[in-house]
Computed example of a mutant assay.
Amino acid sequence: MGKLTTLSFKAAIAPGTYQDGEGLMLVVKSAKSRSWQVRVQVDGKRRDFGLGSAGKVSLSAARAKAQELRTLYQSGVDPVAKKRADKLARLSIPTFREAAKLVHDEQKAGWRNVKHRADWLSSLERLAFDHIGDERIDLVDVPMVRDLLLPIWLEKPETARRVRQRVKAVLDWAAAKGFRTSLDLSGLNKGLPRQPKGDNHFAAMDYVKVPSFIAAVKAAPETTGRLALLFTIYTAARSGEVRGATWGEIDLDAKLWTIAGIRMKAGKEHIVPLPAPAVKILKHLAEARKGGKGEVIFIGTKERPISDMTMSKVLRDMSEPFTVHGFRSSFKDWAVESTGFPDAVSEAALAHLDKDRVRAAYRRTDFLKMRGDLMAAWANFVDGGGGVVRDITEPARLAG
């Protein structure tokens, strides 16, 4: 038991050193300047460590701290070195942005799907970094994750699900690395609105109504979002392919758009024959381009590609309950019901892989010429040209 008592500890105000035992001492410089120190033997040498002000650290707390320090030394741990290491560890903890990039670099080699490899990090850049990118990874909590998911939770439930999984993967990696403790996201749904059940199909506009919709978009004031939506409809492309399109992918003379496999869902290069209205949009936008081949075509804020919400907003502003992706279904329905083109041609236009592996292995064509005719017919239809394509030998000719 220590020599000091609660009463003698409080009464010790005269300058001097008051021993409690086992190296613990109360050092008094004046009635207002009293502090705790503990003396230990380290490799035969005496070392004194401060334990804090006596005005803030009680006698019992000082004894506990002294015992903790002695125990560390007895186990071979240098408290000073440990304190420095802990401080260094805190300084080296990455932000969520830095951690996500490290996870991507470490794990991408194991992902067979090239499209997934590219989309994994870009989805976090678009939808998470603005919210938690600069937060230290050990400080990210459930409310932060909830807030970043809320804007897309009902609008894009599948995208929200993927972002949530990827955020969790980064947090789990950080826990495994010792940067933080595990974060339980199992109750996250309770803080978000209930997602309506559906058939997982993208809401698509009846192709018969697309021409009047196109006319309405053209009649509205021009915005990058509207031009991008028109281009997406004319080419029947995925919105992500359009948003990430660069001038280096475009050959205006040949009227072709070549998308690298890394940007495609199937991981294979895809060549899109550009119909005249799509070329017209590109030439219009080319007047403002700066000349770099890697320059994005549809530019949003801060010289970055437009977000996935930009085109969706055009539909919302026009009170249309459809999705951008749904126009691919509109195109497919039109191709099946109103043209004589083989199904394989419209499937190739949509960059769908043939699920019959044997048939796909023997196919040696991508139907580029026929797809060019098909896209020209589609553009003519949605621009109000009307008619039905009947003759597959001359598919670009529209019957009245």
Rank of each mutant, 00 (worst) to 15 (best):
A175K: 01
A204S: 15
M144L: 08
H131G: 03
R328V: 09
M144C: 02
L124P: 00
V358Y: 10
R357Q: 13
R34W: 10
S30N: 09
D308T: 13
R363T: 10
Q107S: 11
A245S: 12
L398W: 10
A99E: 08
K293N: 14
L88N: 08
W173P: 00
K369E: 14
H352N: 09
A260T: 05
P277Q: 13
V145C: 03
G248P: 01
Q74N: 11
G244K: 02
D253H: 12
A14H: 10
A54V: 05
A118Q: 12
D308G: 09
F367D: 11
R328M: 11
A377L: 13
D86I: 05
I297Q: 00
L188Y: 03
L374R: 00
G400Q: 14
L398F: 07
R162V: 08
I259H: 01
L24A: 08
K56Q: 13
F96Q: 01
G244A: 12
T258V: 13
S338K: 15
A85I: 02
H270Y: 12
G21S: 12
D105I: 00
A278D: 06
H325F: 08
E303F: 13
T339A: 10
H270C: 05
R112V: 14
M264T: 07
T95Y: 09
T6I: 13
F331M: 09
G244M: 07
K313Y: 06
A220R: 11
H270N: 11
A11E: 15
K177G: 07
A160S: 13
A99C: 12
P277F: 10
T365G: 00
G23D: 04
A228Q: 05
L59F: 07
V80E: 11
V42E: 12
I93Y: 03
M311W: 01
S92Q: 15
S319Q: 10
M1F: 11
L256W: 02
W120K: 02
M144S: 09
K56T: 14
G55P: 02
L124F: 02
G133L: 08
L171N: 01
P79N: 08
F367G: 00
G294W: 03
P305L: 04
G400H: 13
A379N: 09
Y73I: 15
T246H: 03
K268L: 09
R363A: 07
R304I: 04
W36E: 04
T232V: 05
M264C: 06
V336E: 11
D308F: 02
A175W: 00
W36N: 06
A260L: 03
W111N: 08
P94R: 01
E135W: 04
S186M: 02
K56Y: 09
T232R: 03
A118S: 14
G385Y: 09
V140D: 01
